[in-house]
């Protein structure tokens, strides 16, 4: 059983725990930004619209890794604060994928038929009720495939945090390698498998959510 190199797993799984936590926190933050920016971009207020557009374009127009480095190395100098690697990583991933996610939110909201809004106006719902009860529940079902792709991209993006010395699965792998270079192939094989399994689990999760969102609508 030596060729399975199972002894590599405990340290790698320790790293995977960080990767998973980071993924979870970042997805939550990215979802918040997606909805805030996606809805903000459809606001009547011109100022709000341009602020949101600037955020989205800047984060989509530059690299995730550059953003990560900027937040981890430059931002603390600029504001004279201390940021842990974890905080910086969650911020960078959340802001970056939030910008991409906002486009998913925006286009899904716009894809809800106009008649739905009109019907909710005719029933005298307030703008908040229209959004909360009529538009978002329908848009949500349309957002899921887009969110599914983005969360896989986000998971892959978490590997970059190794470069700011956060001890994720990649970092653990590189450390293991420094102990025994001869085991490099086995280490990377395990890392790839762990990422793949995680990505697959995330895909199943989204499929479950898609099925739930479509329930009963035939």
């Amino acid at each position: 059983m030596d060729w399975l190199a199972l002894d590599l797993l405990p340290p790698l799984l320790k790293g995977l725990k960080i990767t998973l936590l980071l993924t979870l926190y970042s997805i939550i933050l990215a979802l918040c930004f997606s909805f805030l920016a996606g809805i903000g971009r459809l606001s009547h207020s011109r100022i709000l619209r341009s602020i949101v557009a600037a955020y989205v374009e800047i984060f989509r127009g530059t690299s995730l890794l550059v953003q990560l480095f900027w937040i981890y190395f430059a931002l603390p100098m600029l504001l004279d604060i201390r940021l842990s690697a974890m905080t910086a990583a969650v911020l960078a991933l959340g802001l970056n994928y939030g910008a991409y996610g906002s486009e998913v939110v925006r286009s899904s909201i716009l894809a809800v038929p106009k008649g739905q809004v009109e019907a909710s106006i005719a029933l005298n719902m307030t703008p908040y009720q229209r959004m909360r009860r009529i538009i978002l529940p329908q848009a949500w079902a349309m957002m899921l495939p887009g969110f599914g792709n983005l969360q896989i991209e986000l998971l892959k993006g978490t590997s970059l945090v190794y470069l700011i010395t956060l001890m994720d699965v990649t970092y653990q792998g590189i450390t293991l390698r420094s102990f025994d270079i001869s085991r490099t192939p086995a280490i990377f094989a395990w890392i790839l498998i762990l990422y793949f399994v995680t990505a697959y689990a995330l895909t199943l999760l989204i499929r479950f959510a898609e099925r739930k969102a479509a329930a009963g609508r035939g």
């Binding site: 490099t184 990377f188 790839l192 990422y195 793949f196």
Partner: peptide, 19 residues
């Protein structure tokens, strides 16, 4: 598609020469 580019790059520079 579901695994990070970074790891794939490491495979190219660390594993290829060795294996």
């Amino acid at each position: 598609r579901s695994t990070p580019l970074l790891i794939q790059l490491f495979v190219l520079v660390f594993v290829l020469p060795q294996s």
